[in-house]
Write a protein that binds this DNA or RNA. Structure first.
Lengths: 170, 170
DNA sequence: CATCCGTGCTTCGAATTCGAAGCACATGGC
DNA sequence: GCCATGTGCTTCGAATTCGAAGCACGGATG
C-alpha cells in the first residue's frame, strides 16, 4: 500500500467545495420538497425520472440506473410512492420479472406542483452567484468527470459487462 | 407561489452533473474507507476535522458546523468512534456543557493509514480527467457557490417582504 | 422439456439518519 | 441571589438506508 502524494491545495479546495456544495444543495432541495409536496429528494427524483421518459413509465431497473441508489432502497421508496397514490406498479407484458412504474394523475400533478419551487431553490442557491460562462464550464467539467466515473470500474472488479468489451482490466 | 421559468439546458446539465458526481464520489470514497479502515465517510470526516485542528481537539459543535450533518447524528457517530477507541470525549474546562473530542493514538494512526487510499480514490475518480486549469476553475466556481450558500438564509429567515414591513434585515 | 445460470425485484436484519423533546450548564437582568 | 432565556449535547422514536439472501422468470443448452 504505497503512500499517495498529498493533494495540492487547489485540488483539496475543489474536492471539498464539491462535496460540501452537493450536500448543502441536497439538504436545501430536500427541505423544499418536503414542505411543498411531502416528498423526499429521492422520491422526487424517482417521480422525475419516470415523468421524463416519453411514456411516463419505466422499469425499476432503469430508474435505479439513473439514480445513485440501491435497488432495495428503490423498492422501498416506490412502495411508499405507490401507497401515496403517486405511482402505479404493473408487471411488464414483455418480461414477467420486470415491474413497470408509471405516474398516476396525482403523481404528475404533484410533480408539476413542486417543480417550480424546486427550480427556484436551485436558482437561488446554486445558480445565483454564477455567470452563464461559469455554468457552462461547471457543466462541462463535471460532465467529463461523470462520464469518467461511470466508465472507470469500482477499483478492482470490472462491472459485469455484456460481452463485447473485455476492457483488458482483468 | 409563482411559476419559475424552467432551467436552461446548460443549467440542468450543471445541476445534474454536480449532484451525480457528488453522490458517486461519496459512494466510492465511503467504500474505500470501509474496506481499508472500517470507517464510514462521516466518521472519516469527523476524524479529519478533529485531526486538522491545531490541537487535535474540537468541540462537538465546531465539528458539526464544519460538516453537513445533524447534531444528533454527530453524537451517535462520535459515540461509535469513542467505543472503537479512535477518539476520546472530555468535558471542556471552560464550559461544562461542551464536550471536547480529541484523537487517540489509534485514531491518529488509523487516519494516517486510510488517508493515502482516500487520496488515491479522489485522484482516480475526480481529478484524473481534469487539467489543473479545470481544477482551479472548479474550485473557484464551487467555492463561490459554497460561500453564497452559507450566507443565504435557509428560506424562512428572510420571510415576507409584504409592503410596509420592517425589512431592515436585508 | 429438464436444467442451469443470469436478470429483476423483494424481503430481511442491522445500522444510520433526522427533528423534537429533554437535560444540564451559562449568562444576563432584576 | 434568583429567574428567564440561551447554548451544548444527548435521548428518543420513526423513517430510511444498504447489502445479502431469497424468489421467480427468461433464455440458452442439451
Amino acid at each position: 500500500m504505497p503512500d499517495a502524494a498529498p493533494l495540492e491545495p487547489e485540488q483539496l479546495t475543489a474536492y471539498f467545495a464539491l462535496m460540501e456544495v452537493g450536500s448543502l444543495l441536497q439538504h436545501a432541495v430536500d427541505q423544499q420538497l418536503r414542505e411543498e409536496g411531502g416528498l423526499s429528494y429521492i422520491q422526487f427524483q424517482i417521480l422525475a425520472v419516470i415523468g421524463e421518459s416519453t411514456e411516463g413509465r419505466q422499469r425499476m431497473t432503469d430508474v435505479a440506473d439513473r439514480l445513485v441508489h440501491s435497488r432495495s432502497g428503490l423498492t422501498y421508496q416506490v412502495a411508499q410512492l405507490a401507497e401515496a397514490g403517486l405511482v402505479a406498479k404493473a408487471p411488464s407484458p414483455d418480461d414477467e420479472r420486470s415491474v413497470i412504474v408509471s405516474l398516476t394523475e396525482q403523481g404528475r400533478a404533484l410533480l408539476g406542483r413542486v417543480m417550480s419551487g424546486h427550480i427556484q431553490v436551485v436558482q437561488r442557491l446554486l445558480l445565483a452567484p454564477l455567470s452563464s460562462e461559469d455554468v457552462a464550464q461547471l457543466g462541462d467539467v463535471l460532465g467529463r468527470v461523470r462520464q469518467h466515473m461511470r466508465a472507470v470500474p469500482p477499483r478492482s472488479a470490472a462491472p459485469r459487462r455484456k460481452r463485447g468489451g473485455p476492457t483488458g482490466r482483468e
